[in-house]
Amino acid sequence: MGDRMTLTDHNALIGAYPFRRLPEPTPERLLAEMGRLGITSAWVGHLPSAFYRDAASGNDELLAALEPHRGRLLPVPAVHPAFPGWQREVARAVEASAPAVRTYPSHYGFDPAGRAMAALCAACAEAGLEVVLTVRFEDARQRHALDAAPDLIGAAVRAAVRSDPRVRLLVTAADRAFVEEVHFGSTPEEAARIRWDISWIWGPPEDHLAQLFRTVGRERFVLGTHFPLRLPEAALTKLELAQ
């Protein structure tokens, strides 16, 4: 997970959310929270891009917003692989030195086990980009009536990791059952290409995170806060209390 001197938040976002007000979802506030909590750098996506039909325009906003902060905030652009010109967004990500791209099958409405997803995985593997998948933004029990995008299911991740032998995935906001289903539903070689953020995994006394460290392996997990949707200190407290 790294020590506190080199902590990287692998699951941060900026921008507004359509279904509830988020206090200051800005790069400046993210940096302030990182400073308060000792987080060195962050992989930053653009929350509105999950809801735009044309993700490219969201990437324009993301790259512009992060430009003054590129020393600590690394852009993670969004790619809609069933929309014209998506290959250009992969190329822009490379050009911007992004470590990864995000995609949202449930929100964009493409089959996570289909050809578009496989094409994106292949392109990212070729470009050396990790693919970030998001299981959920919010608890299903509090969704807005118009928020109809279903949570990602484990089958989507299994299909993605099998689609290209070189693709690397980072799955955010998965809970223990999801992680276990995918990890033990994959070959060791496939599982070694999947990383998980800890933002949605329970700490003590149920100790799901500690259990997963033992069974799946500590090296498969990364810090993720799910800012600006969740309190960033929550990821750190569960790490602090993991047995």
């Binding site: 329970w202 700490g203 003590p204 006394p205 309190l231 200190e233 929550a234 407290t237 569960k238 209390l241």
Partner: peptide
């Protein structure tokens, strides 16, 4: 309740 880590996080956030 079932997650003590989140309780601690919320307590700390009150200061923030």
């Amino acid at each position: 309740d079932l997650t003590m880590d989140t309780g601690l996080a919320k307590l700390r956030h009150l200061s923030a």
